[in-house]
Simulated assay, not measured.
Amino acid sequence: MSALGPDSSRRYAGSAFRVRRPGRLLAEASALIVAVVVAFPLYWMVLSALKPAGEIQSTDAKPWTLAPSLDSFRRVFEQQDFGRYFVNSLLVAGTVVLASALIAFLAATAVTRFRFKFRTTLLIMFLVAQMVPVEALTIPLFFQMRDFGQLNTLGSLILPHIAFSLPFAIWMLRGFVKAVPEALEEAAYIDGASRTRFLWQILFPLVFPGLVATSVFSFISTWNDFLFAKTFLISDTSQSTLPMALLVFFKPDENDWGGIMAASTVMTIPVLVFFVLVQRRLVSGLGGAVKD
């Protein structure tokens, strides 16, 4: 049999590269177009926050400004109790993220590692709960929070968001827990590790990427919530969160679009910071966790 020489190999590799190159360029161009489409609303939001009032109210909207102004941001930070709203949002989102991650980790481990009656039924119930629209449950939740005495408290926001975050988190973490070989668990028990030690020192680090992904989902949905805050915080404005602060800029005669865009920009910054802090863990897998 004849073998390809060095020159033939190089020509073959070069031709293969030329064949693949048009497809690669098309994929890169498509990704760039999608990125521009997704980023344009964010750009327009920041641009509107920096535009002076005259340009925002102008009928000839332009995708730039030659006279950027921070007046809209000044009006936002001068709003009474804006700092309190910010702290309330952080408290609610942080509590939901930590509580839902802990409960989901334990629940996913239970439904994956243990065999018990109605386990499949329980998993289906988690999936069905994820499919129910939030709007359909808002009124029943209002009466439930009223009976619990939680109206006008941050608890009325924390408890529902934990409940709505758990189905998705449990289903996602179930795949991570299932990917950990049972042989690893058996080896840990042979080496003298207790179930608690295996759970927190071995299993928890391996499923941590899944916890990060579910935490991002929980944080974003809780941070941007307006429906529950508007429904459950009916009289005590001191318990309001940042989305409720946007209502200040909606006025009967004329909306303050500069203030709305500036407040929306301020609300977006913590989400971006949170994502940057955890983005390295989002793509982490289990490769290398179990060695031969």
Rank of each mutant, 00 (worst) to 15 (best):
R174N: 13
E254Q: 14
L227W: 12
L286T: 09
F204I: 08
F249K: 09
A129L: 11
M244T: 04
S48T: 15
R24N: 11
S165N: 04
L184D: 01
P167N: 05
L141V: 03
D191W: 01
A61Q: 14
N255L: 06
G23Q: 12
G285R: 05
A289Y: 12
G285S: 01
I139G: 14
P41T: 00
V46I: 11
P243F: 05
T241R: 07
T268N: 08
R174W: 01
D60Y: 11
A49E: 04
T222S: 03
L246W: 14
A193P: 15
I190Q: 06
W223A: 04
A188V: 01
L154H: 11
V111K: 00
I170G: 03
L127P: 07
T95W: 04
D292R: 15
V38N: 02
L91V: 12
I33C: 15
L91E: 08
F118R: 00
P209C: 02
F176E: 10
L184E: 06
L137P: 14
R113D: 00
D60A: 13
A136W: 04
F232Y: 10
V36D: 12
A27G: 02
D60S: 13
F142K: 06
K230T: 10
L203Q: 07
W200L: 03
L206G: 09
F105L: 10
V111Q: 05
F148Q: 03
G258N: 01
W257G: 13
A169Y: 03
G259I: 03
R21S: 05
G54P: 08
L282N: 10
E185R: 14
G175I: 02
L102S: 14
V132M: 07
E254C: 04
L203T: 05
L233Y: 09
W64L: 10
F228V: 01
A27Y: 02
P6Y: 11
T95V: 09
L127R: 00
L98T: 07
L154Y: 07
G175M: 01
W200K: 02
A179M: 03
